[in-house]
Amino acid sequence: MLKVTNINVYYGAIHAVKDVTLEVNEGEIVTLIGANGAGKSTTLQTISGLLRSRSGNISFLDENIGVIAPHKIVERGLAQVPEGRRVFLRMTVRENLEMGAYTQKASGVAADLEHAYALFPRLKERQRQVAGTLSGGEQQMLAMGRAMMSRPKLLMLDEPSMGLAPILVEQIFDIITEMNREGVTILLVEQNAQMALSVANRAYVLETGGIVLHGDASELIGNEDVKRAYLGG
């Protein structure tokens, strides 16, 4: 479904992503784990078209998306929940969700809103509230609900558990598996490797810009190097 081949991304002279190759098949949950600064967010931003790779290729549903505008990539069915949530703080919860549906026909929006509210009942209670007044967990739910409004085929989430209490992390991961069961393919970026590996089918490990390891999540969870570096033992 998504094939990233040998991409290289720079910030000026900083070579942030080095020859990264990864693949996500339809129906999977794939996780990309790695320490802070490894290049995870840069990789996702490049797939979404906000940053450009100097070489290599990114194909989604057999189309080269490395050359098309970010808003067109969303139209193709590839959405992202960015790191730090980035909800529109001055807009209401409902308006945020409507922005998520920007690429959709008006006729389908009401049903999609109900679907988002079913996944996140808290958002329905707060639909008229300005997003800036929500708690961190609620903002994460809003960011996820908002991304779902574009009816993505592939959803990329960048550290959805960041800064959340363990009980909320649990809830967020439950919803990710729920979305996957509904047919959305998932590419999940996490520093919380334990949680990520427990829900994912396959995993890639990113270290200082390069992929150092990949395989089935169940294998990596038992891998000694992964245990030492990312699972606290």
Partner: peptide, 24 residues
């Protein structure tokens, strides 16, 4: 309006607006 709300979204965060499919 949809366009008007998109303008407010762009004024807050252009990157996030692009991730919504808004042509900034």
């Amino acid at each position: 309006t949809k366009m008007g709300k998109a303008m407010r979204a762009c004024s807050e965060d252009k990157g996030a607006a692009q991730l919504m499919g808004i042509n900034v």
